[in-house]
Design a protein around this nucleic acid. Structure first.
Lengths: 142, 142
DNA sequence: GAGTTAATTGAAATTTAATCTCAATTTCAA
DNA sequence: TTGAAATTGAGATTAAATTTCAATTAACTC
């Protein structure tokens, strides 16, 4: 279970798996997809569990540090996260017209990035590759 | 001259090339590299020209809309911009600790992206590739 | 269990980049 | 010169995220 990974991560730091942390964890792992901290907070609130905004943010940061959650991007309206456990890393193509998102993965690109990091003595931790343009449907119409 | 492009962009919208806008423009195009809005504001202030923080931000947004300046990333401390006129496309590595930005360019990655777009019948227009991690200096300390 | 220590929590305050407000000023075409 | 429209700047506002700190909770020792 993923929660065991989190528990181990916490105890390795002398931290405890409290009810609030469990609540945040469960809400995040209850579904697959992107989420924003504020909506996460509201969902937890709706679910009946008590967890303050501060605790949600604090737990979220812990989950990122543990590697179970990834900060995907920063938008005008704040950060966007997704839980990564069991998900293979992927990148995105975004259609400028209909906002369709196509996921893709390229081993070759991944390797080239590693190579570039090595060359620059940079220790890459994560990356975002987003291609913007027109999807098949919308591209045909132009 | 790049400023002519800006002037045309402005007049196309019924906007004027004021002294403040010229000052922001000049400061940005006076050097090559990344910059943050706040530092830009301070530099303009130091240069003796009067331009309020609000005007600097407003002009910056106009420059982005005109295509002369690009918002390249968002850090914890805010947005980072660079002027793109006459610059070849490149991607970035961003240090999570010190926010240092390293530019890189890979023909191979560019080609792979084109290939992926073709495979997905996606017409790519632009892309952002950002690798986040630790630069040489900050990576050594962990 | 009781006592001790350290971690945790939540409400509110704070921080900070960026935007907005709006009265005063400037620009420019007629 | 005049008037409509754009622009400016000082300060207020916004909003995400973090911090503060007193009160609470958990875990450990005896």
């Amino acid at each position: 279970m993923e929660i065991e990974i989190f528990r181990k991560f916490l105890s390795g730091r002398g931290l405890k798996l409290t009810n609030q942390r469990v609540a945040v964890f469960n809400e995040i792992f209850a579904f697959h997809g992107h989420f924003e901290p504020e909506r996460l907070y509201l969902k937890i609130k709706d679910s009946g569990t008590r967890a303050s905004r501060a605790s949600v943010y604090r737990t979220l940061n812990l989950l990122v540090e543990s590697g179970l959650v990834e900060k995907i991007t920063r938008t005008e309206k704040g950060n966007v996260y997704e839980h990564t456990y069991g998900h293979r890393h992927h990148d995105h193509m975004v259609c400028e017209v209909c906002d369709e998102i196509i996921e893709f993965y390229s081993e070759k690109i991944e390797n080239l990035q590693d190579e570039i990091c090595r060359k620059n003595n940079f220790r890459g931790v994560s990356h975002t590759l987003e291609i913007r343009g027109y999807c098949e449907k919308c591209g045909r119409q132009r």
